[in-house]
Design a binder for these strands. Structure first.
Length: 312
DNA sequence: AAGAATCACAACCGCCTTCAT
DNA sequence: AATGAAGGCGGTTGTGATTCT
C-alpha cells in the first residue's frame, strides 16, 4: 500500500492563476510555510492540484525572485554552464541566485531560436532543434557519448568538420575570437590532477585535429604552435580547468579568449596560461588521468556556434 | 491600421526518483 | 520488499504582448 493520493483531479482549476488564488497561496505559506503540497490546496482553500501550487510558488510567488531581462553576466554564466552540464536547468539555476530553472529554460529556448535564426548559414547542430531538422542517415550514436541528443548533434558536426580542410580549421583557431571548450563526463577528478587532465585533453584535441581531419602531423604541430604561442600569433587565450561544479557530475577544460568571462566565483578551477613545456602523455598516464572527453564546443564572440564530437 | 509573425513566459504534461505505507 | 503517490525536473504548449510587413 502506498501513500494516499495527492488530490482528486476532478473539479480542479487549470490555466492562469488569479490574483485571489495567489493571495490565498501566499497567505497560507506565509503562515504555515511551504511543503506538504498534497494537503496544501484544501487547507488553503484552493481548487488546484498540489503540484500546480508548488510550481506557482517556486516559479512566481516565492519571495526574492529576480524577474526581468537577464544581465550579460548572467547570460555568460548560463551559456558556460549549459556547455558544461547541458539541459540541467535546476543545476544551472543554483548558480544564478534568485533566478528559477523555468526562467533559465525559457531564456535558453528563446535564445536558441534567436541564434538559430542568426546563424542559419552555419552548420550549427547544437543550436538546431533536432525535431525540426532531418538528420543525416549516416549520423549514428557514438559509444563515447552518454547523451542521446547531444550525440546525434555532435556526430553531425563531426561530419561537417571532417569535410573541412585542416588549414581552414586552423585558421578558425587562429582567429582571435574563436575559442574551444572541451567537456568531459567525469568531474570527480581531484583538483591536483587538473594540470595533467588539461594536458591530456589538449593532447587529445590536437590529435583529433590531425587524425580526423587529414592525418597530417603538421596540423597537430600547427595547433600546438597556436596554443603555445598564442600571444605571438595574436591569440589571447587562457586555459581553465574546472571540476566539481556545485556537485554537478561534469567538468571540462575551457580554452577561451581572455575576454570571455567565466563565472569564476562558481567554479573551483585553476587558471594556467598555455606554455611551451606541454608534453604529450603516454597512453597509460592518459587513461588514468582523464579519458572521458565527450565533446568540443566552439565559440565565436562568446557564443557557441558548433560542437565537435571526437572519436578517440 | 490591420493582420501576420515572433517573442516572452507562465503553466501544464509526463517521466523518473524518492519515500511513506 | 513491494507498492504507488509525492516531489522534482525537463520538455512542451498556450497565450498575451510586441514587432514586423
Amino acid at each position: 500500500m502506498g501513500r494516499t493520493p495527492c488530490c482528486s483531479h476532478d473539479h480542479l482549476r487549470k490555466g492562469a492563476w488569479t490574483l485571489e488564488e495567489d493571495q490565498k497561496l501566499k497567505a497560507y505559506i506565509h503562515t504555515y510555510g511551504p511543503g506538504s503540497w498534497r494537503t496544501l490546496p484544501n487547507k488553503a482553500g484552493l481548487e488546484r492540484c498540489g503540484k500546480s501550487c508548488r510550481l506557482r510558488w517556486f516559479n512566481y510567488l516565492r519571495p526574492g525572485i529576480k524577474r526581468g531581462r537577464l544581465s550579460k553576466e548572467e547570460e555568460h554564466t548560463i551559456i558556460t554552464l549549459h556547455a558544461l552540464v547541458g539541459n540541467r536547468w535546476s543545476s544551472i539555476a543554483k548558480h544564478l541566485p534568485r533566478r528559477t530553472d523555468n526562467e533559465i529554460k525559457n531564456f535558453w529556448n528563446s535564445y536558441l531560436k534567436k541564434k538559430k535564426k542568426n546563424n542559419n548559414n552555419l552548420l550549427d547542430p547544437l543550436l538546431t532543434n533536432s525535431s525540426e531538422t532531418p538528420q543525416p542517415a549516416e549520423a549514428t550514436s557514438s559509444p563515447n557519448n552518454n547523451n542521446g541528443a547531444q550525440c546525434h548533434e555532435a556526430n553531425a558536426t563531426h561530419q561537417h568538420h571532417t569535410n573541412q580542410s585542416t588549414s581552414n580549421l586552423l585558421n578558425q583557431v587562429a582567429a582571435a575570437k574563436t575559442s574551444f571548450q572541451l567537456v568531459t563526463r567525469d568531474s570527480q577528478q581531484p583538483h591536483h590532477s587538473s594540470t595533467s587532465a588539461r594536458r591530456l585533453l589538449l593532447n587529445k584535441m590536437a590529435n583529433s585535429f590531425s587524425q580526423k581531419l587529414d592525418g597530417n602531423e603538421a596540423a597537430k604541430a600547427a595547433f600546438w604552435r597556436l596554443m603555445n604561442n598564442g600571444e605571438a600569433n595574436g591569440i589571447d587565450e587562457q586555459v581553465r580547468v574546472g571540476y566539481g561544479l556545485g556537485g554537478v557530475p561534469t567538468g571540462g577544460v575551457v580554452i577561451t579568449p581572455s575576454s570571455f568571462s567565466l563565472p569564476s566565483s562558481e567554479f573551483n578551477y585553476c587558471t594556467d596560461s598555455c606554455n611551451s613545456t606541454l608534453s604529450f602523455l603516454d597512453d597509460n598516464n592518459a587513461a588514468s588521468a582523464h579519458d572521458e572527453l565527450i565533446q568540443i564546443l566552439r565559440y565565436e564572440d562568446d557564443e557557441i556556434i558548433s560542437m565537435y564530437m571526437p572519436d578517440f
